[in-house]
């Protein structure tokens, strides 16, 4: 038989954890976006694994949707970044803290 599902799930969990950590550690907005992509991929991996485990095509369908949403998100997010950079050279996320109380 193929590799047990647990391995995939552990792999996905590790990937998710790395993505989350990276999101919190890095200050470059673009890299933070990449970390989000990592987390999304971890989720996708989980979906596919469960689809196989449960013999359900729905998991793969969900992955398709996540792909679409991720694409849309990246597009809009990058547009925002471009708009921000146009107003000022905000190299990092920490330069923007207008909400400081």
């Amino acid at each position: 038989m193929s590799v047990p599902s647990a391995w995939y799930l552990v792999l996905a969990a590790v990937l998710f954890g790395m993505g989350a950590t990276g999101l919190l550690i890095r200050r470059n907005v673009l890299i933070m976006f990449m970390c989000i992509e990592l987390m999304l991929n971890a989720v996708n991996l989980t979906f596919v694994t469960f689809a196989r485990l449960l013999n359900d095509i729905g998991g793969q369908v969900d992955v398709l949707f996540v792909l679409v949403v991720a694409a849309a998100e990246v597009v809009v997010g990058l547009a925002i970044i471009v708009a921000l950079f146009r107003r000022r050279a905000a190299a990092t996320a920490d330069d923007i803290h207008i909400l400081k109380g």
């Binding site: 689809a51 992955v63 792909l67 990246v74």
Partner: peptide, 22 residues
């Protein structure tokens, strides 16, 4: 991994959309 889990279509899409576009 998608291929390994026999999600052929998704594997293709993953490469095309992510690696190719995003």
């Amino acid at each position: 991994e998608f291929i390994d889990e026999s999600a052929d279509f998704l594997a293709a899409v993953q490469i095309i959309v992510y690696a190719g576009a995003v």
